[in-house]
Design a protein around this nucleic acid. Sequence first.
DNA 1: TATTGTTATACTCTATAACTATA
DNA 2: TATAGTTATAGAGTATAACAATA
Lengths: 136, 136
Amino acid sequence: MSDLLFSLPGYALRRAANAMMAELAKRLALIDLHISDASVLMLVAGRDDMTSSDIGRLLDIQRANMVPLLDRLSAAELIDRLPLNRKSLAVVLTERGRAKLAEVMEVTMNFERELLHRIPPEHRDHLVPALNALWH
Amino acid sequence: MSDLLFSLPGYALRRAANAMMAELAKRLALIDLHISDASVLMLVAGRDDMTSSDIGRLLDIQRANMVPLLDRLSAAELIDRLPLNRKSLAVVLTERGRAKLAEVMEVTMNFERELLHRIPPEHRDHLVPALNALWH
DNA sequence: TATTGTTATACTCTATAACTATA
DNA sequence: TATAGTTATAGAGTATAACAATA
């Protein structure tokens, strides 16, 4: 029964995700970002029409939980919020935000390359399609 | 750049794990268990020599965080704690714990079967080996 | 009526430090 | 010296309800 647990796809998925997140969080902490911060910076890059609600829907983050996240990015002067109309605000990168995004890209791309490299070649190309089938 | 995020293995891993955990948590809540509770029940099944520290090491849960978890299982009378020596306690299933384990197995096996079934056949057998390479 | 942004709140999971007692 | 069990605490992520203002 003990061994059964470690053979379950769900358990392997959980442990792999936890290990990956812990490692990525450490690397992003070196540039003073949370994982969700980095996702938001990548998502709004080159756009000027994404609202807080839009971002939340795309990243599966509740509207209410976007508030402290965007406050944090705003306090670090990485984003501005520009009125789209009298109700909505667009989240856009500042100059400093674009510079930080370049750091995010370097950390992320190195990390993702190392991640894939740990997977035996015969399984490598199957991971993303298999994972996407579980949440798309 | 926005599209890049959704193509990253790390991001797919995170979203797939979150979706899986949310679904599993819902099903286990129907039998009044947290995900970690179910893991512990499966791990100690048929054994009488696993300490809290042993379980924590195997499941990657800090010793300190095992305390409320085992207190919860103990309060539900699913486990007993028997002295192994004057320092350590073995976590063992009670009669009620063995009955609950049977429910856990039914929920878990149905869930894992459905999970695998969502993955296209050509990718299915690659998921667990790929995931295991990321944390083993 | 539905949606946006927000406040308040609570719960789970996780991480660290420190302490006592025993190996 | 190292390990087991525990307490206390803090940070991070997440979920829900409610509100005012605007679409």
